[in-house]
Design a protein around this nucleic acid. Structure first.
Lengths: 247, 247
DNA sequence: CGCCTGGTTGAGAATCATCAACATCTGTGG
DNA sequence: CCACAGATGTTGATGATTCTCAACCAGGCG
């Protein structure tokens, strides 16, 4: 069900103008007037839907654009020198990615669709010149970038300080929170990524992830049906995520 | 010795214009013409030297400026909900910090001097308006920010994938590399931060850090004299950092 | 139908944390 | 200038968490 939406409705779902897009408030946390929105709209390119496994860009590709997820989900990852993969992020509708390319004018990670997805491409040069014309847009852009930096910092703390249980609880809470920002269910959702991806992202092994999912289920925190997750006790899960469940 | 420099020479060392600053190439990786450099110079504020333990800014302070290290060293850190500290970075001369505030217009970390240091403050609003006037500066700014993002991503990978030995070797290699960019010795340097800070930054305990320093010393990779480090075998240390020393 | 990928579960091993004792360094006041 | 206290660093013994190796199960696709 979730991947039939974007595939078919090419002219409705995926050609929506920013001014009609329900995600605009998430992508662009400032209120733009309609004429300004339209100018932004003009530079945004909406490609055909990408399918599971397709790349939006690859490591070392030239950095030309940043991207927003319209529907679906994807991951970014880098390949370490010894050939292992490091998943650096999961992205859901309304979220921006691709800023990793700003530093060297080349992407430092690859972006791959986890399921059929629709993507908005925002050419960076054009966005940059728009920022000089639309007041507040530059500030806004810095802000969005800054949020990405803060998110990374949180991940660093998570990896550096938290146990496997805490990491996994945090991820579930994070997905739940992001879902509710998009007016979707905070308690029941489908994980688009594999256990391997989750493990990789959180710096754990698949086995550990699997075990902890089972443990959480036994503790009545969540119900797991393969990739379908129901959060049964969000408060307690939140407590586990923050390590304040022990005392 | 290292902390008597900036304390005394208020008018020479610490009032140097950007155009005379040997670090300019590191701070601002574009070549600016002299008149442009001077305009940048005008907005940059050079405060009095800060001393060990002084804060440059604190978590939740308003975000007004980004900063460059002129001399000395500092760390950024956040305090987690349960009151523990998470060190998020160490900064050496020529390096920029403070971008963490862009996301919310408030700093999300605190910045504290590890030793007597001189800091350049660059008011962000003024920098932003300069970017509209000096061609290439905006691009440059994005680039510097992007480098910060890439650095964070590397840290994420380090924390997620690497053993304690690999993390510590990586940190030593990183400091060595950054030293040589500043034309200082890549093989012999003074660590400005405590073992506790190192451990915290790398997601380890002090004991583990201490043990691994000893181990590296036994293996003739480094010589440790308290906070003075000599790298005896950089190649091998590099190999340890990348985990390709085992086979 | 059977293969192959992805996920689960178990047993044993390894790494790193914890607890504890002790050494060293710093700086402060007598 | 020395003595002492507190902070910082080192080392050892023990234990917990997580990884590794291995077997097994389930589902999707040719």
């Amino acid at each position: 069900m979730s991947d039939s939406i974007s595939a078919k409705s090419a002219s409705s779902s995926f050609q929506t103008a920013c001014s009609n897009c329900q995600l605009a408030a998430i992508c662009l946390p400032i209120a733009l007037e309609t004429p300004e929105m339209d100018r932004l709209d003009e530079i945004i390119q909406r490609g055909r839907p990408v399918h599971r496994g397709d790349h939006i860009f690859r490591e070392e590709d030239d950095f030309t654009s940043i991207y927003a997820v319209r529907s679906g989900a994807l991951k970014t990852y880098a390949v370490t020198e010894d050939g292992r993969e490091q998943v650096t992020g999961f992205y859901f509708p309304g979220e921006l990615f691709g800023m990793d390319g700003m530093g060297k004018n080349q992407h430092t990670v690859s972006a791959k669709a986890l399921e059929t997805s629709a993507i908005c491409e925002i050419p960076f040069n054009q966005l940059q010149s728009l920022t000089t014309q639309i007041s507040g847009l530059q500030r806004n852009l810095f802000q969005v970038i800054g949020q990405g930096i803060n998110y990374d910092r949180q991940l660093i703390t998570l990896l550096s300080k938290n146990s496997a249980e805490e990491r996994i609880a945090s991820l579930l809470v994070s997905i739940s929170t992001r879902n509710s920002r998009r007016k979707l269910s905070a308690s029941s959702f489908h994980l688009p990524m594999s256990r391997t991806d989750i493990a990789n992202f959180l710096g754990l092994t698949v086995e550990t992830v699997s075990r902890i999912f089972s443990r959480f289920q036994k503790q009545q925190l969540i119900a797991v049906d393969n990739k379908d997750i129901s959060i049964l006790d969000l408060d307690k899960l939140h407590a586990v995520a923050h390590g304040d469940n022990k005392e």
